[in-house]
């Protein structure tokens, strides 16, 4: 089982001060699998995926990504981060750089790619997220949806094996959510391994191979979307679903 897992979390525990934010979290993700994580706010879902590229440090248990165990070893952390792309709720584009520079920066400085090649790559990525015409603008001149698509292109330019999405549409105006979700659906259909924290249940139904429901730092339920939405096991999941589907 764990042979073919590309991400493996075993008994992961983490505390913020006295607050036990992750409690014995176990999760196996296979290559090309699409996982959607949902749960109420404060349930630890963001913290869990931030542990996978070590933006947060777990305190107990083990996290293995693509055969590399995440420990204090800086070299391992760098290697994992090269494998894992991340998209944030707040986009986090670099405001002092143009869209094109945002995308070429890491390939040029981290992967030592020649500038011309990196720029070509950036344009290809911008085509994929459907905004090549914005290449020379600055992030502040783009709409939220466009910024988030640039952020996706920026991650993809590092050619990651795994993409983590931390509530990618939560900061967007409703009419912009679709343009971002469309790009993510394309990405999923292209065979990317993805872990997506989101409340977009429509998106989850279309692309997820597996749903993970978290509450109070624990994984409460793990199931196929079909079973998760139609026939959830735990009462907590039922309550959550009834709240978000009937709003």
């Amino acid at each position: 089982m764990s042979e073919e897992s590309i991400i493996s979390l075993k008994n992961v525990n983490k505390w913020f001060g006295d607050f036990h934010v992750l409690q014995d979290v176990n999760l196996e993700v296979k290559k090309k699998e699409r996982i959607v994580v949902c749960g109420p706010s404060g349930s630890g879902k963001s913290t869990m995926i931030r542990c996978i590229n070590r933006l947060e440090e777990h305190q107990e248990g083990s996290i293995v990504v693509d055969g590399i165990e995440l420990t204090g070893n800086l070299k391992n952390i760098d290697n994992v981060r090269k494998e894992v792309g991340m998209v944030f709720q707040q986009f986090n584009l670099f405001p002092h750089l143009s869209v094109k520079e945002n995308i070429t920066l890491a390939p040029i400085w981290v992967k030592k790619m020649p500038k011309a090649e990196a720029e070509e790559l950036a344009m290809r990525q911008l085509e994929i997220v459907k905004i090549p015409e914005q290449a020379n603008k600055y992030p502040g001149q783009l709409s939220g949806g466009q910024q988030q698509r640039v952020a996706i292109a920026r991650s993809l330019a590092m050619n990651p094996n795994i993409m983590l999405f931390d509530e990618p549409t939560s900061a967007l105006d409703p009419e912009m959510i679709k343009e971002v979700l469309d790009v993510m659906v394309d990405l999923a259909n292209g065979g990317m391994t993805m872990i997506v924290v989101t409340h977009e249940m429509g998106f989850a139904k279309t692309v997820a191979d597996r749903m993970v429901f978290m509450d109070e730092g624990k994984i409460v339920e793990e199931a196929s979307p079909d079973k998760f939405f139609n026939n959830p096991e735990s009462d907590r999941t039922k309550l959550f679903l009834s709240q978000i589907l009937h709003q």
Binding site: N53, N92, L105, A106, V110
Partner: peptide, 24 residues
């Protein structure tokens, strides 16, 4: 978020500071 974005792209401490943080 600027630090997190830079780190998630695999940048080292010095690259992150020289290219992303200090210019801003």
């Amino acid at each position: 978020g600027q630090y997190e974005a830079a780190k998630s792209l695999g940048m080292s401490y010095w690259r992150m500071n020289l290219l992303i943080i200090l210019p801003q």
